[in-house]
Design a protein around this nucleic acid. Structure first.
Lengths: 177, 177
DNA sequence: TTTGAATAGTTCAAGCTTAAAATATTAACG
DNA sequence: CGTTAATATTTTAAGCTTGAACTATTCAAA
């Protein structure tokens, strides 16, 4: 009894995708909705944090992080592939990072179709200030899950990722060719 | 050796948020990026499917599904809470469902601030045709993960969800009050 | 009852996302 | 060589999302 959490007066309780799901719903669907709920909750925190503390967005942060992980330079295509977004998307994000002075862009002399994006010192510094704060947000979101369970979760998500990836590639093979 | 998958000629390999992550990265961050990868992969499939097969979007599908689960009628606020999006968002989504004839909206006579959204027969039928196809997409994405692992994943995601939710509510308590 | 606070919903600007069409460049091959 | 196919990127229209400002309505308290 005493463990029941009171809903604050006149503030509607936080719901999620699972709420009200029929008892007959299959495990697949339950897992999917719970996965979506977890991602949405954590992503929302991060987006709010990035906006509030750094006046930036998750896609911009992600672009900087991917560039850094890749050693500082990537083509537009590599960037879109690592960020899991379509090609057309990257243009606007990189444009904005250019304005901010966090990256530079130049055509590859060897293949003038290719445009390379490179992290500047300012970009690297900006990223370096954000990374620890960002990682702390992630850790806080997972604070109530103990290390061993996290490790197990990591492993299971690896299986799920491979399963979903395989499905993705099948679709590609059918249509794209 | 023979198990190595060839990348199709001239088509860049599919990457994800994890690629290139430093070995020193903490488990928290690894879990988060893998979680995000899984969600993105599955969500992308569903969005493409809904567009291709039903000329609709995930938010619209989700709104219909939430209405159905709730018995057919919800207030705008309830809908936004279950869909985990902000209030202002719902207006446009419901507007579109109204156009399509899948819902009706009327003011509550008891409290004229409240607007109730109700599923129409057409909406219920449309949803009924989508549900099995949608669920099949989800199942396909998870096809390579066996039942027991899925059950375990479900449990672990439950812990993560509670952990992230608690964090969310703390933030609310600090600012909102 | 009047007045101020809370609540439900809408509108708006800014930003992200996608698919499709368009442009530019390079590769492939007869 | 010249034509065709493939690739890298940009542009555009349509749609989703957020936070903030705004309207309308109800509640609460002096």
């Amino acid at each position: 009894m005493s463990l029941e959490r009171d809903t604050p007066p006149n503030r509607p309780e936080q719901r999620d995708y699972e709420t009200g799901l029929a008892d007959s719903a299959h495990l697949d669907l339950r897992v999917w909705l719970r996965l979506l709920t977890c991602t949405t909750l954590i992503e929302r925190q991060i987006k709010r944090g990035l906006r509030g503390d750094f006046e930036t967005t998750l896609p911009r942060f992600d672009a900087l992080a991917q560039l850094d992980r890749a050693g500082g330079t990537m083509t537009m295509r590599e960037l879109s592939s690592h960020m899991m977004v379509t090609n057309g998307n990257i243009t606007a994000i990189v444009d904005r990072l250019l304005e901010d002075g966090f990256v530079v862009r130049r055509a590859d002399p060897k293949d003038r179709r290719v445009h390379k994006v490179q992290l500047t010192d300012a970009g690297r510094e900006f990223l370096a200030t954000m990374i620890p704060v960002h990682n702390a947000w992630v850790s806080e979101a997972m604070a109530q899950v103990d290390e061993q369970d996290l490790a197990h979760l990591y492993k299971l998500l690896g299986q799920l990722k491979n399963s979903a990836l395989q499905r993705d590639e099948e679709r590609d093979r059918e249509s794209g060719r």
